[in-house]
């Protein structure tokens, strides 16, 4: 397999992550905002605060948090690392740094996304904005699948994409934390990742809570489930670093990911559902540790050039 510059590999990894992050955030945001609108019994401040904490944001002050604040933080604010705008711009900036490796079609797609990103969102445009983000990131993935050689650069893209997807699905599942206090229904959660019909067909009927959770956690065939995403990330890692040891899953990143899925798979589903927020936190911790391990293994970066003494 062609090798690729470490710096470029890192860009590819992050293009994958940022695209997926934009997509996942748009899905979560869409569910949340619809919920707040449709259900008058929900305490808006409370719901918004939990959403922000699920997305890993520090709590902002004592004043009531509105959906407008959430929208700004998670969608519009270019300078905020959790926002969709930030993710899309960053995907584009990384593409600019790997311009000679990615296909022209992918570059033009990402360039167009960043330039067409609205600076302000009117309340009535939020849903169509979320749809737009989903469609664009689907388009970018589609272009990648149809125009990139399955070389190292591609594997890094896939690795980034599926690590991020596992993380995003975990966060989405964590929003069900609110279910008892009127959080999003499982139907809404399933719908937001396009899993509703697929889940209906799989369980032949309206899924119960454990069924729905099991589907998004462990289904081996549904492409947004945590098990599927981690399996794909492991596949990409295997391609990148086949390893020489006879023991499988030799690298740190592989070990961390295997561990995380095992702890879900080999535990009764009821137990997992009962402590869903905890388990979802564990998944996020594992993906972020795996990401660090990938960084240490493949992208050893020095901010300043090193002066290596001549041995000759």
């Amino acid at each position: 397999m062609n090798t690729v510059l470490s710096r470029v590999a890192e860009s590819l990894f992050w293009i994958g992550r940022y695209l997926e992050r934009a997509d996942g955030t748009a899905r979560i945001l869409d569910v949340h905002l619809q919920l707040v609108l449709e259900d008058p019994s929900i305490d808006e401040d409370q719901a918004c605060r939990s959403l922000l904490s699920i997305m890993g944001l520090e709590q902002v002050g004592d004043s009531a948090v509105t959906s407008g604040d959430v929208l700004e933080l998670l969608a519009e604010d270019q300078s905020h690392p959790a926002s969709i705008a930030y993710s899309l711009y960053s995907a584009r900036e990384n593409a600019r740094r790997a311009r000679e490796i990615i296909s022209t079609e992918l570059w033009e797609c990402l360039n167009a996304i960043a330039t067409k990103m609205p600076r302000r969102l009117a309340a009535d445009r939020v849903h169509s904005f979320c749809t737009w983000v989903r469609e664009r990131s689907a388009m970018a993935s589609g272009i990648t699948y149809t125009t990139m050689s399955r070389d190292e650069a591609y594997q890094f893209f896939v690795l980034g994409q599926f690590l991020e997807r596992a993380d995003m699905t975990a966060r989405l599942l964590a929003t069900s934390e609110l279910t008892q206090e009127g959080g999003p229904s499982w139907t809404a959660i399933l719908r937001s990742c396009g899993a509703y019909e697929s889940c209906l067909r799989t369980y032949r009927g309206v899924p119960s809570t454990p069924d729905a959770a099991e589907f998004l956690l462990l289904d081996r065939l549904f492409p947004r489930s945590i098990a599927f995403s981690i399996q794909r990330a492991l596949g990409a890692l295997g391609e990148l670093d086949p390893g020489t040891s006879r023991r499988g899953g030799a690298s740190t990143a592989q070990r961390l990911l295997e561990q995380a899925t095992s702890s879900l798979q080999y535990r009764p589903i009821e137990e997992v559902v009962a402590e869903l927020p905890y388990h979802m936190d564990q998944i996020q911790v594992a993906t972020s540790a795996a990401s660090e391990a990938v960084k240490a293994r493949f992208f050893p970066s020095e901010a300043t050039p090193t002066w290596v003494g001549e041995k000759a």
Binding site: T3, V4, L5, S6, R7, A9, E152, F156, L240, F298, F299, P300, S301, E302, A303, T304, P305, T306, V308, E310, K311, A312
Partner: peptide
Amino acid sequence: RDLYCSGGHVWMHTT
């Protein structure tokens, strides 16, 4: 920063 020199040769950091 992708390049470094050692032993009188030039190298690039790849994966």
